[in-house]
Design a protein around this nucleic acid. Sequence first.
DNA 1: TAGTCCATGTAATCAGTTACATGATTCG
DNA 2: CGAATCATGTAACTGATTACATGGACTA
Lengths: 186, 186
Amino acid sequence: MSLPHAILTALLEKPSSGLELTRRFDRSIGYFWSATHQQIYRELGKLEKAGFIRALPTDSPTRGQRKEYEVLVPGREELGRWVGEQEEPRALRDPLMLRLRAAGVVGVGADLVEELRRHRALHAARLAEYREFQRRDAARGHGTERDRVQGLVLRGGIDLELFWVTWLDGAIADLTGPGPEGDSVP
Amino acid sequence: MSLPHAILTALLEKPSSGLELTRRFDRSIGYFWSATHQQIYRELGKLEKAGFIRALPTDSPTRGQRKEYEVLVPGREELGRWVGEQEEPRALRDPLMLRLRAAGVVGVGADLVEELRRHRALHAARLAEYREFQRRDAARGHGTERDRVQGLVLRGGIDLELFWVTWLDGAIADLTGPGPEGDSVP
DNA sequence: TAGTCCATGTAATCAGTTACATGATTCG
DNA sequence: CGAATCATGTAACTGATTACATGGACTA
């Protein structure tokens, strides 16, 4: 049950409408908790009914009209409670590793190596993006706890992408270089 | 749609019953693709109906009686096809990072730091376990492609756990050491 | 006025989790 | 025989994804 708390966090950082939230879930927050607009609107409805957030009063009708939400006191309390909770680390689910392992029994093809290269490029791009965020953030101060914590999370993102790029480089080298395999890279 | 292919891979590596599969999904395979026994039995049923696997013939009744499955030719073909597929990297969903970011707005408490320490210990334990696998595998040869690929995946697991341990150490140091915070670590 | 974009939503489906049910075997 | 364990399954629910619907505002 993390999505509602992700939304509460986002709204505390800055009150927003559903679409703005969706965009923010494509950027910063989405880098470690993704969500689609359908999920977000549904969850906003639930959070409002629960009394955790409210739509800022407006005169216009509801549909097709921008609705800005802010967090109410019970919402902030709920988030504080949740932050103190324990939770087991997620069991990993990574299709690429699975694919590799499957290739171990049915044979590694050139298209799999191509797929590894593609992922390598995607992770490298994201890594560059994160480093750009970091560079930009370094300019502004990081005196508050909030800044320090966001810096920490960003570092986590960077190190994680670094892991992927490094590991994928190793995997590609291993599958194309030595051994009896001479396939791919024509 | 990775679970069926995870099962096909597992069954190709070694024909098994549902419960054996469940155990294997708690060990090696489960380290990058987890599944519960309910999922596995359900999926075995579907795979059998699709003609990808079959239960080894037996005389005894069905319920409460061990049923061993093996992969049929169409199943192996399907897996080969799937290995060649493209798929976007999964959008990350990590509650711990989210919790940290939430703590950035509602305040970092001692219990959160405790939770980081707990996760650090869990990841360190898994890291040690993986390294033990690696040590054991090194003894046996790794001549075949299958061995090489499994070694690759294991290295991925190790590097990933290493990332967590390192990052968590940094985070704990950052939150307890400098700055205006003096909480926790009594 | 037709098209495009902004914005909010509904419906159907699928994957994964939790809780529970049932039968067979073994061992004291 | 009763309890524990091995083994296979059902049912209900929750969370996430995909596809589609609706309406307002601007603009060529």
